[in-house]
Design a protein around this nucleic acid. Structure first.
Lengths: 353, 353
DNA sequence: TGATCATATACTCACGCCGAGCATATGAGG
DNA sequence: CCTCATATGCTCGGCGTGAGTATATGATCA
């Protein structure tokens, strides 16, 4: 049995995803699939969470920022990850440290430039974390706050106004309109999806659902990428739509959303936060970095107790003065924790026989 | 700036992964990358966790079982996931329900048939969960206990003997030998990796680290796939190596390992376990299914309390007799929970301003 | 120089989750 | 009808964690 010699068209099984993407007629052939490697590189600079973007010159053909990316070449690249590192090094001058694969996007139309709907690119998104010190080595590109692309995710000053002012009314309007081509077996009502994603009507805001929120806005035609991809805008708001965040080229904003959600989730069960920290830091600086990633404020004393009792840090012996008050003890990451604890806090804990 | 018109060979940045794969000379050109869609389809039949495999006829060219898979065709397939569903339907007759992307594997040599080391295939692995009832609709292929491929993961009867008898001594031997080509910046000593992955010397067994354990065995040359891919076997044991689990073709065992780890992790924070259950079930049947996935036994009363108090199930009103004792109440999954709770149990909880 | 303030650090308490054991209900099978 | 196996219900104790209060120490400025 050799399935590779057996490419033919076949019937569509029922689709479970509630996706309504328009389908342009494909033009390229089966072999013409290109693999794009995309890097969402995250750092925290001056307590601001930032992503590394390549900014398009004004008036250029494309529209908006891009993430560093390039095609995967099986000749030049030993692995997918090394290919990514090469592209990032070439395009930005940055040598990556921590790198983690996020997701592979392959929907039609998502990664399409205007006028060329048939380019079939499968995007493999990666998350990279960079220490603030290294972040300043940048040669090309720019660090840009990720809240410029997702203003509704910025809860540092309380609930963002854009939610009640712009997003929620338009989403409610969209929820009233009939779904066009969705054929999920058991569709989740739009009202419920909105409530879950945006935590309204008694729901709670889950800071990890960054991608879900962006995809909902995309489906509702409320972000520029949706209109660019040919999705019709909400009829009631056509022409009067404000830009919900700064858009990006291709599906890069989706990849960045995936990255933000992943970081926010991961720092809770893996010590990846230290990938963003310099070698020595105060506990308050650490907390500020965590808050930059997660959003809302944390309880200071409990944060301190948590971090110390978990054995995540150890004091260096030095202190940092000029903090505006009592000098703060400096700490460093205890790398040995990963050798000691398996993974802090699992839910259903098993009992040993 | 157009990175796509800029494919050329570039220097290698430092590699952070501790990988020592041999690198055959590439033969295909840059455009010849094929995308393989692979499905790890999981079910629980008679309290046994099983995966759907295509069994190779005896004496055929390849060696070992395969997961259902096929190449992605941008013409025939609207999305990656619909392509996967098509391939599975064709090869097994099974219509998939819950499907989730796992990981994209792209290392050289991993997905290579003997004698053709230059085939460049990027494998996108998927996890699918199938209810026991649907599982019997199978037309081609076979359900096979996943512990046949990973006997060291089977802790239902206590710690598997194969660990102390076969695996640990060989791993300790491997740890003593010098690393050949690894060039990580901050290498984790082999002893520590073994201790973390297999929970020996005071470590704890983490049932989610299925992939880490398999990759360690691969690196140590202790699984058949490693030898097939050209990795030299442990010198001290050459010729006397027992097979550690049943091997699979290509990198399918690695994908299955990823799938097992993902299911084990995911049932702890998402109600995916019900994708494996029939509509009506007793709480003990539910517990048995969870235990089939996770391994060790759970505390019965606490499991019951957890499931009920979380609002995950509701009684149907019926009972199931002939259970050998008092008839058990039948329950069904309360789908509304996903509309109510965001995600049970996050670690660092944020306080509202 | 000393008063004042801001920050760092320490201690305490209470609630709730969860591991663990005991007790009771109910029907099957001999 | 007795016995057993399983289902179901209840309770206790420890620990994690949210949250408040108290103290230490140095910067800043009148």
């Amino acid at each position: 049995m050799n399935p590779e010699a057996n490419i033919k068209r076949r019937f569509r099984t029922q689709e479970l995803d509630a996706d309504e993407i328009q389908e342009p007629a494909p033009r390229s052939d089966a072999a013409g699939v290109e693999i794009g490697l995309n890097a969402a590189i995250v750092a925290v600079i001056d307590d601001e969470p930032v992503a590394l973007v390549i900014r398009e010159a004004e008036g250029a053909t494309g529209q908006g920022d891009m993430l560093p990316f390039g095609p995967f070449s099986p000749i030049a690249h030993r692995t997918l990850e090394s290919g990514l590192r090469s592209w990032v090094a070439e395009q930005t001058g940055l040598g990556l440290g921590y790198v983690e694969q996020l997701y592979t996007f392959g929907d039609r139309g998502r990664h399409a430039e205007p006028g060329d709907q048939s380019l079939h690119v499968v995007s493999i998104g990666y998350l990279a974390l960079t220490e603030t010190g290294h972040a300043r080595d940048l040669q090309h590109g720019a660090w840009r706050s990720w809240y410029q692309y997702f203003p509704w995710e910025d809860w540092r000053k309380g609930r963002p106004e854009i939610l009640a002012a712009e997003i929620e009314p338009r989403l409610r309007d969209w929820a009233q309109r009939p779904a066009l081509r969705s054929a999920p077996v058991r569709p989740v009502p739009r009202e419920d999806r909105i409530r879950i994603c945006f935590g309204i009507d008694g729901g709670t805001w889950d800071e990890e659902k960054v991608l879900d929120r962006f995809e909902l806005l995309y489906e509702a035609g409320l972000v520029d990428e949706a209109r660019r991809d040919g999705r019709e805008a909400s009829s009631a708001w056509t022409g009067a739509l404000p830009r919900l965040g700064v858009s990006m080229q291709f599906d890069h904003r989706r990849i960045l959303a995936t990255a933000i959600g992943r970081v926010r989730a991961k720092i809770k069960y893996r010590p990846v936060i230290f990938e963003l920290m310099p070698d020595d830091f105060t506990l308050f600086e650490l907390q500020k970095t965590v808050e930059a990633i997660l959003g809302p404020h944390l309880h200071k004393q409990n944060f301190r107790r948590l971090v110390e009792s978990a054995g995540l840090v150890e004091p260096t012996g030095d202190v940092k003065t000029q903090t505006g008050g009592r000098p703060a003890k400096l700490f460093r990451f205890r790398r040995e924790v990963v050798l000691e604890r398996p993974a802090p806090g699992v839910r259903v804990k098993a009992i040993r026989s």
